[in-house]
């Protein structure tokens, strides 16, 4: 495979936290290729380095060693500002605890990355309303986060992640704070994203969430210990899964 068709490519990717006795190799020489359009689930026990890996992929943290490409462009050497610009256009983050701006309305939260990227207010607003419609919250556009349920907040966060039509959406335990019904809403949303060809990396320790992916990598102590491509039939089982969950 060449770098060009890959959304994400990593070689010997490492991240060391702390110094001396507190030194932890959170991510330890990981090689990873994520083709465009793939939904990748990263699983593993707590503390195995999943979040750190995601932060590295999204340029939220600087790598300690290794090489990293996003859509064929080398990004491990970029500075803080360049990484910020890159995140704006190429990455959409979804966090476990949503991280919405409490003082901005749903639609204002969704259009935030578009405005940061320099889109005109009118374009940004139109796109934000489209996205809110897509996540089923068109009627909640003017609500503040505090006036939304957890599941609704996470859907707003997902819409925000899609604001600049990013190369990859990186989600860190997106259902960790949600009840079953809300989890199913979010999974359904990811499923529809996958069908549009959106590259998606989901960190989760929830087997049900992992089961909806094209591929599951398992981590332990900062390394990949397993890499399974799920057959289409299995992933198509989301409907069954939801049937069970609901």
């Amino acid at each position: 495979m060449t770098g060009g068709t890959l959304a994400i490519r990593a070689r010997g990717l490492s991240k060391v936290h702390g110094e001396g006795q507190a030194r932890t190799r959170a991510v330890d020489e990981v090689d990873l290729d994520v083709p465009a359009g793939q939904t990748l689930a990263v699983t593993g026990p707590s503390g195995c380095g999943k979040s750190t890996l995601l932060h590295l992929l999204g340029g939220l943290e600087r790598v300690s060693a290794g090489e990293l490409w996003l859509a064929g462009r080398r990004i491990d050497r970029l500075g803080e500002r360049a990484l910020a610009r890159l995140r704006r256009r190429a990455i959409g983050f979804v966090f476990q605890d949503f991280h919405l701006m409490e003082e901005l309305s749903a639609v204002q939260n969704v259009e935030l990355p578009a405005l940061l990227a320099g889109r005109t207010p009118r374009t940004a607003r139109r796109r934000a309303l489209d996205l809110l419609d897509r996540v089923g919250l068109a009627d909640r556009a003017q609500r503040l986060p505090a006036q939304l349920s957890g599941g609704q907040r996470q859907r707003v966060a997902i819409a925000r992640a899609l604001s600049n039509a990013p190369l990859a959406v990186l989600a860190d335990e997106p259902t960790g704070n949600l009840d079953t019904a809300a989890t199913n809403d979010v999974l359904r949303l990811f499923d529809s994203l996958r069908s549009t060809g959106q590259t998606l990396v989901i960190v989760t320790h929830d087997e049900r969430v992992a089961a909806t992916a094209d591929r599951v990598v398992s981590m332990r102590d900062g390394r990949f210990v397993d890499d399974v491509h799920l057959p289409a039939a299995s992933t198509g089982g989301l409907g069954d899964l939801l049937g069970l969950g609901g």
Binding site: G58, A84, R88, H99, M101, L116, R160
Partner: peptide, 11 residues
């Protein structure tokens, strides 16, 4: 949060 969404520290 702003930085995660792509705001530079300067901004």
């Amino acid at each position: 949060l702003l930085k995660a969404a792509g705001a530079t520290p300067g901004l």
